[in-house]
Amino acid sequence: MSVTNAQNAKNDDDASRLPEPAEPVLRPGSGVEKRRNLGVGSFILLGVGAFVFLFPFYYMLIGSLQTAPDTSIFGAFPNPANITGANYVQINESINLFRGLLNSGIFTGGVIFFTVIFGLLVGYALAQMKFRGRGVVFGMMLLVQMIPFQLLLIPLYVMIVRDYGLADSFLGMILPFAINSTAVFVFRQYFLQLPSTLFEAARIDGASELRILWQIAIPLVRPAIVTAVLLTFIGPWNEFLWPFLVTKEQSLQPLAVSLANFISNIAGQAGNPFGAILAGACVLAAPAVALFIFFQRQFISTNIGSSVKG
């Protein structure tokens, strides 16, 4: 209880300090307690839900530590006689986890880099600068989010792999995801909340637009950057199809691709294939899960809601 209250207090505090996105912030404790407190049924429903959502992750961890796969009900509990780290060694021998993590990191980092640099520029321009064509750029940003990736698959493959020869390169992996339009939208929404008089005053004082952006605007929207980085992170880190098509060379494959190849091709050769698969799965899942637990306050309904609704 005290934890949640502290949480709420923090949220409220944030709301007063920071620019709020367009949608109202989830703010428990503002006179709706009465309705919220009658939820015994809700609580049970949520508990069952949480179990269904979390159990596979728990089972993933347990399974990755088992010497022999135990699919009985007892297998769902830690058994000291059946615990080993050998699965991690096994998967590491097959697919080099470190190299996979590094490749995933470069791929994801590249996408985040381009998204933050160019996204902040265009987000700021869309929110606080008046120029001819601004409406066109804004409309374009909204439309782009509707483009289905499956339609781009073949032409992008033809262009990037065949025409530009970017197969087995990080640039080829990054290019289709380089600037995340949802993140651009988040930046624009946050910049829009800043009073335009602030920027007019800075312009009159002779500050250049880049300096205004760097020294005034960006420090005020730090939470937007965290949100956008988180949103952007999930895409490339978890992406399978595109890097799978682009990278044939194992030393360049992101972990999601090398693990998938392990699942579909070589798992049969491992002594405890499920143990090895689950060990790899834990390594792939851990950074994303840890990041989201750590920054979970930045990833509240508001951010997503405002970014998707358009």
């Binding site: 839900g49 959502f53 399978f240 693990l259 698969i277 799965a281 792939l284 899942a285 994303a288 637990i293």
Partner: peptide, 17 residues
């Protein structure tokens, strides 16, 4: 948090389990 966890995890990882 427990509801986000599957969403933020790579499908390739969860497919294993």
């Amino acid at each position: 948090l427990s509801y986000y966890v599957p969403y933020v995890t790579a499908s390739v990882a969860v497919v294993g389990v």
